[in-house]
Design a protein around this nucleic acid. Sequence first.
RNA 1: GGUCCGGUGGCAGAGUGGUGAUGCAGCGGACUGCAAAUCCGCGAAUGUGGGUUCGAUUCCCGCCCGGACCUCCA
Length: 471
Amino acid sequence: MSPPDPSFAGPSLSGVPSGTPVLLLHDSLSRRTGPFAPIDPDHVRVYYCGPTVYDLAHIGNLRAMVSADLLVRLLRRLYPRVTFVRNITDVDDKINARAAELGIPIEVLTARTTADFHADLTAVGILPPDVEPRATHHVAEMVALIGRLIDSGHAYAPDGAGAGHVLFSVRDFSGYGALSGRDPDALLAGARVEIAPYKRDPGDFVLWKPSEPGLPGWASPWGRGRPGWHIECSAMAHRYLGESFDIHGGGSDLLFPHHENERAQSLCGWPGSHFANVWLHNAMLLVDGEKMSKSLGNFLTVRDVLAEAPGEALRLLLLGTHYRSALNFTREALAEAKRTLDRFYRALARAGSPAASGVPPAVTACLCQDLNAPGAIAVMHALADAALAGDAGAGASLRAAGALLGLLGVEPDAWFRGGGEAEPDIEAAISERLAARKARDFARADAIRADLLARGIVLEDGAGGTTWRRA
RNA sequence: GGUCCGGUGGCAGAGUGGUGAUGCAGCGGACUGCAAAUCCGCGAAUGUGGGUUCGAUUCCCGCCCGGACCUCCA
């Protein structure tokens, strides 16, 4: 069976210039995969939920970020302008608790965690968003939105025991539950709903709550307080992307309640708007078959993994499973991803430094099929085969394909030899081994090779002499 | 219990109403002093029972199994 034909241009719609593939995306709201039609084809607008900055990012968090990065990279190739907004949640009870636990100011914790987050994302080739709003910088917008919701009867500020709170009334939004496929009545049966006596309905959720002295708080019409979790995304998405925008994404665990509530707030706050036209949700990442989460304590941080393998290998591993399928992380798969990159870089080295190439249509076509990155990687394998056989053009195509996927960004030499101990020592050992081989002292030659291997250096005897690389 | 998603070779993992990609592993061979890398070749899969169809891995229903969500979560 032959690999996908690299000349295949993919599906196209009439009226669209031939050769321009149509992007198909799976929308969580409609539960269908269909053509993506931007509100403004000249300016695509995307919002993704970013991290709550109280702890190091784990590789499950990273999966959502890589999924978003792939989407945005593809959109930038297909459309002239893309605005990608990804927030930082820097006001949250977990943050307050962690800062108190560590005995450090909240601002120190959030600043440090944000910096760590950025470093981790950079290490796996994730490009920064166009706007990265922080919740604490947008409290005014949240207060304004809450005011609109109260004025329109979608939210209420209870008296008595609930004084200082503002709650969203799920009963006053007929579309509640549509995104997550839930019947509002059925939700009431949920045992984990916090039953507060001041709620009109057990499903009502907090928009604003009073803040104790010593904890972050802002003045508001309802007294000093702090925002609930969901309101920030509604407020910030509106500020930077408008009432209606194209794509909203995040992990599938955010579908309910977070995204359901965001949607309710925004649709009620700006009647007639659509909020997000398409909802994208990536499936969970598992470790040893179990969902990894901060609450379960079984999580691997991005740093844990980067200590074992290059960031690019982790990225390839994450891209190797379609974003809507569960991904079970294993060390074996991480090692395999690293070896795959070895082969790709070997192919690039073999192909030399040819002129720049466009992204192979087959790669774009795969990605346009609801971000089928595994399919795109399969095409890259075929290109690597051709490049290894001496096809310089295939090498250029491989590099271009890698660029679209955020891979193969360094030179082969840096990939194989970057970092580590000084090279003169290695070269000297190779010279000594060469002399031994010429003298047919293979025991000595093999001892030198074994010694280098123990230090992480692999020797390869080729027609052009002996080369080395780091294992 | 409710809602949703999924079960593809030893493993990972795509696509598809008409004899099932790709990678890893395995086996045989070439090359090599031996390796490494590379190349050639080989074997290997659609959970289960029905239905629709000329034909189902694909569409529909039941069953079994797994996962996610059901107000901390990416």
